[in-house]
Design a protein around this nucleic acid. Structure first.
Lengths: 140, 140
DNA sequence: CCTACATTCTATAGCGACTAGAGGAGCAAG
DNA sequence: CTTGCTCCTCTAGTCGCTATAGAATGTAGG
C-alpha cells in the first residue's frame, strides 16, 4: 500500500480532511494518485506541502500569497525577492493590526472601568460605543 | 423633507450604503420611513445607531454581540451587567489576539532577517514555512 | 423644459476560506 | 456477517459584507 490516505495526511499535518480536499479543488495541492476504489493516496512530499500551507495560514498569509510562495518553493533556483516582499507585506499588516488592537484594548478597559454596574442609561459601555467623541483615544 | 437619505447616513456614519441596507435586512437597524417614491428616510437617532454599530464592529464585536448591546440600549431600564460581560469577553479576546500577533511578528521578522536576497533555495522565508521545527517560537 | 448625471431602489450572486450534511461505498476487526 | 470507521462526491451553509444588473427617481446645468 503505497502512500498515505487522506486521513493520515490530516493527522500528520493538522489540517482537516475536507480542507485538504478543498486545497486540491482550488489547485493549491496537486491531485494525488488514486487507489482501485478511487481513494486518494498521498506521498510524503504532499504531507510537507500541506504542512507548509497550514503553517503559512497560521501566520495569516492569504491563499493567493501561499500559492505564490509554493510556486517559488517548486523552483528553488528563482531569486527570493518575491518571497521577501510577501513576508514584508505580511509583517506590515501584522504591525498595523497590533497597533489597532492595542488602541482597542485601552478603550475596552476604559469602558469596563466606567461601567457603574447600574443601569444602561449610565453605562459607558453603551455610551462610548454610541458616541465616538467619548473615546479614550479619538484617532481610530 | 424630513430626515436623511441613505447616502447621507452613509457619509455621516462612515458605513457604506449597501452595508446599511444589509444591517436593516438582518434586523440590526429598524426599517425607516419611506418617501412617496419609496426611498428610505432616516432620523438622527438612526445615524447614531449606525455609528454605534460601526464603532462596535471596529472594536471587533460580532454582529450577534452588537445585537445584544443594541437591545440593551433600546431598553435602558435593564442592568448593564450583560453589556459589561460582553465587553469583558471582548477584552479577553483582544488580549489573546495581541499576544498571538506579537509572537507572529517575531517569527516574520526572523524570517525576513534570514533572507539572504539570493535564491529561494537558501531563503529562510520559504524554509521556515516548510519546516515548523525551524520556527523562532514553536508553540503555535 | 430638457438633458445628463447622481442617487436610490430591488434582487441576486459573489467573495474568502472553509465547514457541515446527505447519501453511498469500501475496509478491517470481532 | 455485522458493526463502525473511513472514504467518496456533491451541494449548501457560514459570516459580513461587496458587487452587479436593471429600473426609477432626484438634482443641477444649459
Amino acid at each position: 500500500m503505497p502512500g498515505y490516505p487522506i486521513g493520515g495526511v490530516a493527522r500528520q499535518s493538522g489540517v482537516k480532511v475536507p480542507t485538504i480536499r478543498y486545497y486540491e479543488q482550488i489547485g493549491l495541492l496537486p491531485a494525488p494518485a488514486r487507489s482501485e476504489s478511487n481513494r486518494r493516496h498521498y506521498a510524503a512530499a504532499d504531507i510537507r506541502r500541506v504542512s507548509f500551507i497550514r503553517h503559512a495560514r497560521e501566520l495569516g498569509f492569504e491563499i493567493e500569497a501561499i500559492r505564490t510562495l509554493l510556486t517559488l518553493q517548486d523552483d528553488p533556483a528563482q531569486p527570493c525577492a518575491t518571497a521577501d516582499r510577501i513576508a514584508r507585506a505580511r509583517l506590515a499588516e501584522v504591525e498595523r493590526r497590533i497597533r489597532s488592537l492595542a488602541a482597542l484594548k485601552v478603550e475596552l478597559k476604559t469602558m469596563i472601568k466606567g461601567c457603574s454596574h447600574g443601569h444602561v442609561a449610565e453605562c459607558r459601555v453603551i455610551e462610548v460605543l454610541a458616541d465616538h467623541g467619548k473615546c479614550a483615544r479619538s484617532h481610530h
